[in-house]
Nucleic acid binder design. Structure first.
Lengths: 342, 342
DNA sequence: CCCGGCCCTGAATGCGCTTTCAGTAAGCGC
DNA sequence: GCGCTTACTGAAAGCGCATTCAGGGCCGGG
């Protein structure tokens, strides 16, 4: 943007016939004779003066806008978590700005860098980290000076690498619980719709599910695991592939609800009934799955609370010497998309 | 945030044993002897230097982060439009930050003010404006100096008041087309689920629908219009109220798909079948409605394109003397949620 | 061999604001 | 009435950086 001519504090001061210092004080509520203060305020109003946030920040004032970085705001999962963040932020008189990385590590770092450069008071990272330690190290390197400079960081669902305050959904335990629940329904042959292997969440959920099955003597064939992006269409595609191959499983576990929604659509388009022909289960419990027909069995995560907790962590000083970690959620909710195998 | 000690350009310059000016040039790609440049880059890397965006902006550089303000990012409507914005922004090497106002005019102004203070290169406003001219005037006053200062603004779905480049969904015409389509199916008694009357979109859609019915000699009783927030639960609640009163309409038109989803849920919970007992139609064509059972009849808006066009408007200079206005969408898509009345 | 010109570097300036520091006028006690 | 504190105000410094301006090597041409 080409700043053509901006109204500056100096203009206001001149218009009010006071010094620059007095104008600044009047605008910031520091003690100034009421008479002068009114004059300054009037002049500012009249000139449509807006303080330059950059100059202000440079001169030492702090902002009230925190940054939230997630994979994709249009994904209901992130939308819900972000909603929680905003609720708490709103209560604390903070503004929130959201960014979507579309799971591109470089973009993620670009946003962190920007927020850091802007000296945002806090940065929240929402969503799975990357398996590739190179990226996590790069991110850590970007975050470190920010933290040293007094910035506050909290993450949701990103563990392993980043040594900051964290809110962790019970991915592994939740997936294991789902495995037990599905076994209990009588299923023995499963298929899994999985996401990008570069995400740690994928490894956790898949691992938790597979390990629990193994304990029960059920093994998951490689051909029963199909990968797709963590989107509705990704789920649709993965399910279609599975169907094309000839589906032998009686139950499909999608690593996210969003994928499960796509899977249900594919099943329906293929003339199969859920849960009569195939049972389907998801993970996350996004609000939309209750309106599905049939409603989706899933592993419930308190999405909103995840965000709230993260914002709270970022807002409160960590007095201890270790990073704080909150684990939440992971309860199985059985709905009508899964049937008892008779 | 308390800046304790930050690595500054001066530190880098000292470490590389060059002048501050040279360090600045090296980092910004201006001509510098390769030898020195490498030394500076190495020093910067080693010190984990991040330029202070505020100082940089203050000194005249321009940012590459545009701001997008919408009512609620977790609403699929806005998520889709924002997706379009981000696509175009990404192509132009711009970062995007999103803000949710939750339909609070004050918060909207606060975000504009912040973005303006930060001298963001562009601000996009997504979503209906407010009927109360007071707010629109306040917003206009906030925007005016920003525009004068060279800022670029584009809006989606907000007309009447704001005199800036706009992308307008065909709300009125779309609702009218829907009225015709439903009449053609044989319906004569309608109910409407409407949103907050303070939004201009509500007036447009409701007006378009009602006027078209009137042309066909069908009048909409006041008691057949129920108001609720533009959310899934809002639709659920409004529909429930309608049912409690004793529904006489054969067809329910919800002003947004999100409300329609809630309405379908309420109908189902009430033991009624869509479309056998009641037909339901929505507006927007958000992606989720295709996965509904039955899929929703609605007025299709090219949501992604709405956002893309807005970003393009903001990116291209308006050479003419009038503001540019693009009208888009408004086609009726008949799906299975509406039945022919026999 | 000397001088003009070019390219690169460093010193210095200013972006708009907050804040310290010093200065002035008013208010108080003795 | 005088000295001293109190209460504001104004001048000025400096936040970190981009950039202009001037100075100093170096090369080529005369």
């Amino acid at each position: 943007m080409q700043p053509r001519t901006h109204v500056t504090l100096e203009d206001v001061a001149r218009a009010a016939d006071v010094s620059l210092a007095t104008a600044s004080r009047a605008l910031n509520g520091t003690r100034v004779t009421p008479h002068l203060r009114d004059r300054v305020l009037a002049a500012a109003e009249q000139l449509a003066y807006t303080p330059n946030a950059h100059a202000r920040a440079l001169a030492g004032a702090s902002h009230r806008t925190v940054g939230v970085i997630c994979h994709d705001v249009s994904d209901p999962y992130f939308a819900a978590v972000a909603g929680g963040v905003m609720r708490v932020a709103g209560d604390n008189d903070l503004l929130v700005m959201l960014a979507s990385t579309f799971r591109d590590p470089e973009r993620e770092i670009a946003y962190v860098s920007m927020l850091r450069a802007e000296r945002a008071p806090a940065i929240l990272l929402i969503g799975s980290g990357f398996e590739d330690p190179r990226w996590e190290r790069a991110l850590e390197a970007e975050l470190k000076p920010y933290l040293d400079g007094g910035g506050r960081v909290a993450v949701v669902s990103r563990h392993r690498s980043l040594r900051v305050d964290s809110v962790l959904p019970e991915n592994r335990a939740g997936a294991a619980a789902m495995a037990r629940a599905l076994l209990e329904l009588g299923h023995r042959r499963f298929a899994v719709l999985t996401g990008p292997p570069m995400l740690t969440t994928v490894a956790d959920r898949l691992g938790g599910f597979r390990d629990e099955l193994k304990k029960a003597g059920v093994t998951l064939a490689v051909t029963d695991i199909v990968e797709g992006p963590f989107t509705r269409d990704g789920g649709y595609g993965a399910m279609s592939e599975l169907l094309a191959r000839g589906l032998e499983a009686t139950c499909v576990f999608a690593l996210t609800d969003v994928m499960a929604i796509g899977a249900c659509a594919a099943l329906r388009d293929h003339g199969l009934s859920v849960p009569n022909d195939v049972s389907v289960a998801g993970f996350d419990d996004i609000p939309a799955v209750r309106d599905l027909t049939p409603p989706l069995t899933t592993v419930a995560l308190p999405l909103q609370q995840l965000g709230e907790k993260a914002m709270e962590l970022a807002l409160t000083e960590n007095t201890g010497r270790r990073r704080r970690i909150h684990r939440m959620g992971g309860e199985v909710v059985i709905r009508a998309s899964t049937a008892k195998l008779t």
